[in-house]
Simulated scan of single mutants.
Amino acid sequence: MDTRGRRAWPARGAVVVALLLVLVSCGCQPGGDEEGGRGAESPSPSPTASPFTGEAGVEAGPVLAVKIDNVRPARPHTGVEDADLVYAERVESGLSRLVAVYSGRLPERVGPVRSARESDLELLEQFGRPALGYSGVQSRLRPLLEAASLYPVPPSAAPEAYARGGDRPAPHNLYLRPEAALAAAPRASTAADIGFVFDERRPAGGEARERHTVRYPAAAFGFEWSSGEGRWLVSLDGEPAVGTAGVRLSAATVVVQYVTVRGSDFRDRGGNVTPYTETVGSGDALVLRDGHAYRARWERPTASTGTRFSSPDGSPLPFAVGPVWVVLTSADRD
């Protein structure tokens, strides 16, 4: 057996062993730094997580917002259960509409789709420049919408993205194909931080609560905690909200955001003033997660920044991981 070079091993080996013992005793590793004891290689990157839901392993995709009809003849909805975020907002006559926001995970179709409002422009600017699917807009608002920080995708701009359904009468039967809508807006912003913080662990405090209802003058949103599903089950105008796929609409976190709702300079065809919902500024909020209600404060300094939610002590208030519903309601109503 060849033993060349092995005679020097005892001397060199003793030095190496001694060095290893020193490194072990100080908690270091060969080639490591002084802080954290990590080796020369870069640490493994943390798993990707959706900035909208906090779900791990979700690749950020382009942002698509869709304006959803929400009167009784428009239900059941299609594809809303797949949204990362759902915003509820007031429209004329005290009724409501939804803005469903998608990124990365797209259903086959979404709807029924209805027209955009001035408030949508301010609300959506926090997403950068998202694509917006909507059925139309009144002529006076069109220049503002076209100048806004978004990519308008109405039927006139992407007819291949829309189709009428035969299950209900117009105007409650217009549906959007999300993939086709994003193909018409190839430069839509990729999902990024909009101020939300997520943690699977429920924060301390809060008040145990099984249900909560938010009322508009002519609409109501109900949320009932299901410990079995770990979600808040959604009801609309007192009826369980079940989509056309047979799935109950639900959310891991529900945010009741108290805002200023004032009259705008626009009216609908019947002469009713269009409400303007202010989402820039600050105010109170109620955050529902894990069967508990937390008093909070919201702050959004400018239209181009996200909305931060904090506990009374000023620390960030984390949401539960999963879809989020945000109900925008007047500060003088609940």
Rank of each mutant, 00 (worst) to 15 (best):
T53W: 14
A184K: 13
E210T: 12
D69I: 05
L23D: 11
T48K: 11
R97T: 03
V63C: 11
W225D: 00
Y162F: 15
F196Y: 10
V17S: 12
L233Y: 03
V58D: 09
N173L: 09
A293S: 14
V71G: 04
F223D: 01
G281S: 04
S282N: 09
E210V: 09
R142D: 10
T48E: 09
L176T: 03
D33N: 12
Y216H: 07
D33H: 10
P30N: 05
V24I: 11
A188G: 12
V15G: 08
L174Y: 06
F127C: 06
A251I: 02
Q126F: 07
E179L: 10
D69V: 00
T277D: 03
A100M: 10
S135V: 01
L19A: 14
Y162T: 06
V327Y: 00
L317K: 04
E146W: 13
G165D: 04
D2I: 07
L123G: 00
S96V: 11
P107Q: 03
T260V: 10
D120C: 07
R7F: 14
V63R: 03
R164P: 02
P323D: 14
D199W: 12
A185K: 09
A303M: 11
H292Y: 07
S139F: 08
G104K: 09
V324N: 05
L64I: 11
I194S: 02
R289F: 10
P62H: 06
F127Y: 15
S315R: 15
D334N: 13
R7K: 13
Y276D: 05
L106R: 13
S156E: 15
E118V: 07
R300T: 05
G136I: 11
A184M: 13
P323M: 12
